[in-house]
Amino acid sequence: MLKKCTFIATVLMSSFVVSGEAGAADDAEVRGLTTVKQFTLDHNARLVAQAALLEAAVADYAAVIAAHKGDYAAAWAADGPKLAKQVEAIRSLWLEASNQYETIEGIVAGIPETAKYDLILDAGNPGTESEDVAQYDISLPDGTLLERPGNLFHGITEPLFWGMDASHVKLPADLNGDGKITRGEMLFDANLALGAVQALTHWSKALETDMASWKPNRDDAFTSVVTMTPTIGDYFGEWKESQFITGEIGAFVAQSRLVDVQGIMGGCKKMYFSAISPVVAESDADLDRRIKAAFEELLALVEDTYAREKAGARFGVEEADALGNEAQDIADRIVAMVLQAAAQKNVNIRG
C-alpha cells in the first residue's frame, strides 16, 4: 500500500491543476499541494492496514462466540481469558485506526470530492436525522441490512466496543479479572461488530481510491481550511459533554476528544502551511505571518489543554466552555484572514 502511495506521488506533478488565478502555480505551491496529498495518502494507507487488522481481530472474537453457537455466557465460561484479551486487542486496534483517520480528517472532510467519507467514517448522522446523514448501508453476516446506520467510528464501533449502548451488550463480564464488573466490562454483539468493521475496511479503501484520484488545486486547499478550521467549537462542545468533563458515559469514551481535535486542526494547519502559505506570502507576507501565528496559537491552546487533562486536571463545564470559546475566536480570526487572502487571489471557495 505504501509503495502504491509513493508511486502516486511521482505522478502528482503532471496531474496538478491551478484554478481561480490564471497561470501556473509557482513551484512552492505545487510542492506544497503534493506534500498534502502524499501526507493524506500515507495516513490513509495506515488506516486501511489498521482496519484490516481490526477486522481480523473481530473475526477471531466472533469465531469464539460462534464456536459456542452464539451463547455468550457459555463462551465466557469456557474461554473467558481469551475473550478478555480479544476485547482488549480490538479496542487497541480501534484506537490506532481512529487516530489515523483523525490525522487526515481536517483535509478529507474539507475537500468536496472526499467529504462524503467523513460522514461515513467519522461524523455522519443515522438516517433518522434530517441532515448530515451518512449515505451508506451495512450488511451484517447474519443477513441483516442496516440502512443509514450512522458513522462507523463514533456512531457504531466505539459505542459497541466500549459498551456504551446497552442494546448491544450481550453479557456483562469481568474483563480485567478484579472480581468486579464495572461499566464497559462486557461482551459485545459479534454479528454487528463484524459487519461494522468489514464496512470500515471497505470505506477506508474507497477513500484511498478517491484521494488518489484527487487533483490537488488551489480552490480546494482554501476551501478545506475555511470549511474545517471553524468546526473546532463543535469539537470542544463534544469534549464538554463527554465523560472526561461530566463523568457521564456517552460519546467519545475511548479517549479524550481533545486527541481528535489535535489531529483535525493539525490537518488544517498542514494544508495552510504547505499549500496556501506560498500563495499568500508571495503578495502579502504580513498576512501570511499573522495566519501562521494564529494557527500556532490555536494548536498550542489545544495541546496545552490536553496536557493538563492528561496530568490530572479536572475541567468543569464553565471552564470547558471558556476554552471552547477561546478556540473558536482564534479559528474565526484565521478564517477571516484566509478569506481575505482568497479574495486577493480570486480563489473560488467551493460550497
Rank of each mutant, 00 (worst) to 15 (best):
L12A: 07
R31E: 10
A173L: 07
Q100L: 08
F153K: 02
D122T: 10
I245K: 02
F295V: 02
E129F: 14
V64T: 14
A51Q: 09
M265E: 12
V225A: 13
D210L: 03
V280S: 05
T128Q: 12
A63S: 15
V108L: 07
Y72M: 06
D71L: 04
V338F: 03
A59E: 15
G247P: 08
D210P: 04
A62C: 12
W239I: 04
L175I: 10
I232N: 08
A285M: 09
D118W: 03
M265G: 00
K310D: 10
N151T: 05
A342V: 00
E113N: 09
L53R: 14
L33K: 12
R333N: 14
P126K: 08
A24N: 12
K170W: 00
M271F: 03
A327F: 02
M337S: 13
A281Q: 12
W76Q: 08
I330D: 01
S224Q: 07
W214T: 09
M337Y: 02
L175Y: 05
W239F: 15
N217A: 08
D286E: 15
K4Y: 11
E326C: 00
K269S: 09
F315K: 06
A63Q: 15
D284C: 05
Y101I: 04
N176Q: 07
G106M: 06
L145M: 15
G23N: 10
L339A: 05
D329E: 14
S92W: 00
G179F: 12
L287A: 11
D234M: 14
L301W: 05
K180M: 11
M337I: 02
A336L: 11
L194I: 09
L93K: 11
T144Y: 04
G110M: 09
L119H: 11
S167E: 13
G266W: 02
L160K: 06
A212Y: 02
K240L: 13
D219Q: 09
R308S: 11
A28P: 01
L323W: 00
G263H: 04
T35K: 13
S139W: 00
I291M: 10
T103F: 07
K85A: 15
S256M: 03
D234L: 14
E248R: 13
N191V: 14
G237K: 01
S92N: 13
L299F: 01
D165P: 03
L54I: 11
T229H: 08
V58S: 03
N191M: 00
G351L: 15
I330Q: 03
A22F: 07
I8S: 11
R350K: 15
S19F: 06
L47P: 01
A89T: 15
N325K: 15
A196E: 06
S15F: 02
I330N: 02
Y117R: 05
G184N: 10
A22I: 12
A300C: 04
P230Q: 02
G106F: 02
R183Q: 14
A275T: 01
E282N: 12
S204F: 05
A59C: 08
E29R: 09
A313M: 13
G179K: 12
V226H: 01
V226F: 02
E297Y: 00
L298S: 06
G184I: 08
P230A: 06
P112F: 05
D71V: 08
P230E: 05
Q50S: 13
G179Y: 08
G312I: 11
F222T: 04
R46A: 09
G163E: 08
E105V: 01
E158Y: 00
